[in-house]
């Protein structure tokens, strides 16, 4: 579903990604973790072309992201993305947030888009909030709306960029619950997160990144039982022992 081959990127002379390679199979859940500044978010943003990269190749569902001939909007419409800061459109009601791209990009009718949106809102437990504006919701609720908004496009895979990092602790659970359910239904997911509990529960594989490199790419069980690299051991000991 997602194939990343030797991807490198730099800002001027500063390298941010160094020869990253991995694949995410259909239905697979891959968690990307690592210290801040390790290039996790940059890598995941390369997957739908929000960040350009200078070298290498990324193919999503058969479409090459870096190819200048690729219709990026069309590709992005099929790849859902959830952001750290939710990024709901604050000037639109929840209902319109969900309908906008369905109508503008997929060409669905307003009624069709609204019905689909409401169905997904119901699924994340927020059907009663359809006519509110994002600023009237809590952080956890906003992030659940953001997930519903991405799902409304019927994506072939989902990218999550630290979806719980900006949330108050008591709201993390409600967002992770939605993500766990999604994983169990077989959605292909690439998730940048520090939530190791979530990773243990649903991830098939863990990518550990440090200084722009994928240092470790292992089955989740192996990663938590015995991380191979010293950097991953250090990272795990730091985030798990608190």
């Amino acid at each position: 579903m997602i194939e990343i081959r030797d991807v490198s990127k730099s800002y001027g002379a500063t390298p941010v990604l160094k020869g990253c390679s991995t694949t995410v199979a259909k239905g697979e859940v891959v968690v990307v973790c690592g210290p801040s500044g390790s290039g996790k978010s940059t890598l995941i943003k390369c997957v739908n072309g929000l960040e350009p990269f200078q070298q290498g190749r990324i193919v999503v569902d058969g479409v090459s992201v870096g190819d200048p001939a690729t219709n990026l909007p069309r590709l992005r419409a099929r790849v859902g993305m959830v952001f750290q800061h939710f990024e709901l459109f604050p000037h639109m009601s929840v209902r319109r947030n969900l309908a906008l791209a369905q109508v503008q990009v997929l060409g669905r009718s307003a009624e069709e888009a609204d019905a689909r949106g409401l169905k997904l809102l119901d699924r994340v437990g927020l059907a009663a909030h359809a006519d509110k504006h994002p600023a009237q919701l809590s952080g956890g609720q906003q992030q659940r709306v953001a997930i519903a908004r991405a799902l409304a496009m019927d994506p072939v895979c989902m990218l999550f960029d630290e979806p719980t990092s900006a949330l108050d602790p008591e709201m993390i659970g409600e967002v992770l619950d939605v993500m766990v359910e999604l994983a169990r239904e077989g959605m292909t997911m690439m998730v940048v997160t520090h939530e190791m509990g979530f990773a243990r529960q649903v991830a098939q594989r863990i990518l550990f990144m440090d200084q722009g490199e994928i240092v470790e790419d292992s089955p989740a069980g192996d990663f938590f039982a015995a991380p191979k690299s010293q950097r991953a051991q250090l990272f795990l000991s730091r985030i798990l022992h608190h």
């Binding site: 909007p73 992005r76 790849v79 952001f83 459109f89 503008q104």
Partner: peptide, 21 residues
Amino acid sequence: RGQRDAALALGLTLPQAYRHV
């Protein structure tokens, strides 16, 4: 910048992102 990214990530073109978001 996240607002622009979110609009583009949904498949909107840059002109659509400006117009609606």
